[in-house]
Each structure stands twice: as structure tokens, then as C-alpha cells.
Design a protein around this nucleic acid. Structure first.
Lengths: 65, 65
DNA sequence: ATTCAATGTAATATATATCTTGCATATGCA
DNA sequence: TGCATATGCAAGATATATATTACATTGAAT
């Protein structure tokens, strides 16, 4: 489940902790999603996308590499 | 979690059962996702989108009514 | 060299997505 | 009418996403 969450979050100078709080999960959950080791729920994906001002496709659709 | 799965599937003349088999879940799971009563995993959303030749945004992003 | 914030990682616990089975209903067709 | 297919629905079981807690590591800044 590779994705663009980490690179997008870093561009906004947000920490994992800050993003986690905003979307209502823990820092660990964000960390594992960024590493591609989690299969997050659709609701969480949507919440993350909105927080980062991106769409689902931007973050999670056919990520290169 | 409203979405466009049902309308998109019906346009392809696929049954819930057929779509379920293709993406590796049960008919009930597809039924509940179409009703918006489930919060499916990202992997499953991607599998459904590919099977229906759509993207995540097409099926799950800011679905109007 | 030390401190501190950010992140990685791991064990156990909890919540919930999904499965399994079974039955009900609706619809089209012979 | 009767039968087959598609779908709805519900209870209990299982798998897994996520929480919690705790400790380790990294890097920037002092």
C-alpha cells in the first residue's frame, strides 16, 4: 500500500503527531500508513486527504515506485 | 460513506456476486459497501475501482448525494 | 556533549471490517 | 403457478485495523 502521504505531509511542515490529532488517530497509525504497512480504512484516507488538501487519487491511487 | 459503487456496477451489468468474486470478498460485503454502511479498507476500494475501470476519486471522493 | 522534538518499533488490548451461514423477499421467465 | 437468480438482512465467528504504553533512535539546535 505505497502512498504519497509522507511526502505530502512533509511539504506542509506538519508532524505525524499533528496530522494524527487532526484526523483523530494516533501518531503510530500515521507512521505505519506512511511506511505502507497499514491498510487504512476509507474514512481515514478521506480525512487525511482533506487535511492535506489533496484527493484520494493524489495520495493513494497508483503511486509510482 | 456514500459512494458510486452501485450505480457504476449496474452500468456494467455485473452482479454483486460477480464483483465480490473478482475482488475477493463476499456478496454481503459488496452489498453493505454499496449501501454506505461499511467503511471498507483502502485495498478493497482500490480493487473495486480497478475492477470497474474507475479511480478512487470516481467512486469514493466527495460523492454528491 | 547534551537536550529535546520527531520518528521508529514492539507487545498487548480493543474495536470493527469481513466471513459464514441461513433465511426472507423481489423479480423475471418458463 | 412455479422456479431460478439477485439482493436484503441478521447472528455469531474470525481477522485485522487501530489504540495504548513504553522504550529506542535520529537529528537539529544549543
Amino acid at each position: 500500500m505505497r502512498n504519497n502521504v509522507k511526502i505530502t505531509r512533509m511539504k506542509t511542515s506538519m508532524t505525524q503527531e499533528q496530522l494524527a490529532r487532526k484526523v483523530g488517530v494516533t501518531r503510530q497509525t500515521i507512521g505505519l500508513i506512511e511506511k505502507g504497512e497499514y491498510n487504512p480504512s476509507l474514512q481515514l484516507c478521506v480525512a487525511i486527504a482533506k487535511e492535506l488538501n489533496k484527493t484520494l487519487d493524489d495520495l493513494f491511487w497508483e503511486v509510482e515506485n
